[in-house]
């Protein structure tokens, strides 16, 4: 930390007083950033404490069964709370979103940085930033009134016709002993437009801009010398691009993690299209629910103590799983980062 300061003050031959101020500034900056870190940590701890406190009653009453059951019945007196279906919904929709958004985003970013002529790249970039700024409730309404009907009558219909009779691998049984086969099970129940697939797709659309924007930024950091070096060895455009992508992989991975965080925490848009049921199904056409979704749906009207506490338990689960996935991402990141 101090070394560059010294060097620069020597280089500019600065007056001792300047050096003194620079020292104070240094210390101030360090102090402020340390303070920021401490505060962030404190806030996180505080959130955790508040959620834990709120969920305490539910933890006592429901315990581990919360994670192994999927019935959600908040009717006073019936009171059954299991988060499994919601956790499944979060996992499935996030997975679909990343599966589609990451390659698409990389494609978009490559197009903007390495393919499109400047007169096209600039407006596309601008559009991208615009998309990232649209509030999620607008995505949700668009999803419910435009995407979902289209999905149901076109894409899902086509997918259903294509897959419903393809039975390669038996993977289980439906209630009533009919065998469930892959991949026909993915379209079981027929097109509905309000399902895991719709939830995953709306998330894809929502995280696409942010992943693309970051990927674009890191791709622009790819050094000209390496580009020249690769071409000079006879690399094709595609091979050079691959080199650039490998060079930028850490940044791209980070972009994907950010996208994932947004997908896990997204509420309104998903709620508008996912069908909001507490069921677990291997069918992409089945209705489901995410943890963040159930929260935005029911929190405000959670009208008796155990119900409210169970909601807090959901929030706590969401927080912990978000922290864990981020941690896992960090570990992975350290693995792929160049030493």
């Amino acid at each position: 930390m101090s070394e560059p300061t010294n060097r620069s003050s020597i280089a500019s031959g600065s007056h001792p007083r300047h050096r003194f101020f620079r020292g104070v500034l240094d210390r101030l900056t360090i102090g402020l950033s340390m303070g920021g870190v401490v505060m962030m940590f404190g806030i996180l701890l505080l959130i955790f404490a508040v959620l834990l406190n709120g969920a305490w009653m539910a933890i006592g009453h429901i315990g581990w069964k919360f994670f192994t059951t999927s019935t959600w019945n908040p009717v006073p007196g019936m009171d059954k709370y299991g988060v499994l279906a919601f956790a499944y919904g979060t996992a499935v929709t996030t997975f679909i979103a990343l599966l589609l958004a990451v390659p698409l985003s990389i494609g978009c970013a490559v197009f903007i940085t390495r393919l499109a002529p400047p007169w096209l790249a600039a407006p596309v970039s601008f559009l991208l930033e615009l998309l990232a700024a649209i509030p999620s409730v607008v995505y949700g309404l668009w999803g419910a009134f435009v995407m979902s009907p289209w999905l149901q009558t076109h894409f899902e219909m086509w997918m259903w016709k294509a897959l419903r009779n393809i039975k390669w691998i038996p993977v289980g049984h439906y209630p009533g002993h009919r065998t469930e086969y892959f991949p026909a099970n993915l379209v079981h129940g027929g097109p509905s437009g309000s399902d895991f697939l719709a939830g995953g797709l709306i998330l894809t659309i929502m995280i696409l801009p942010i992943i693309t924007a970051i990927t674009r930024d890191v791709l622009q950091q790819f050094p000209e010398e390496l580009e020249q070096g690769a071409y000079g060895l006879g690399a094709t455009w595609w091979q050079t691009t691959r080199l650039a992508l490998t060079y930028c992989r850490v940044g791209i991975f980070g972009a994907a993690v950010l996208g994932m965080a947004r997908a896990i925490g997204e509420t309104m848009a998903v709620v508008m299209v996912i069908g909001n049921t507490d069921r677990i199904s291997s069918s992409l056409f089945a209705g489901g629910q995410t943890m963040a979704g159930v929260f935005v749906n029911e929190f405000l009207e959670a009208d008796h103590p155990i119900y409210l506490s169970a909601m807090m338990y959901v929030a706590l689960t969401l927080l912990v799983s978000a922290l864990l996935t981020n941690l896992a991402a960090r570990v992975l990141l350290n693995r792929i980062a160049p030493s």
Binding site: P76, S148, N276, E298
Partner: peptide, 26 residues
Amino acid sequence: GQSTSVNWPVGRGGKGNPGVAALIEK
């Protein structure tokens, strides 16, 4: 039973009147 949210035996949920209307219309 009766409540502000229940464990629905069938169907899909929409958020608010617009959400339900979207499901019906679609």
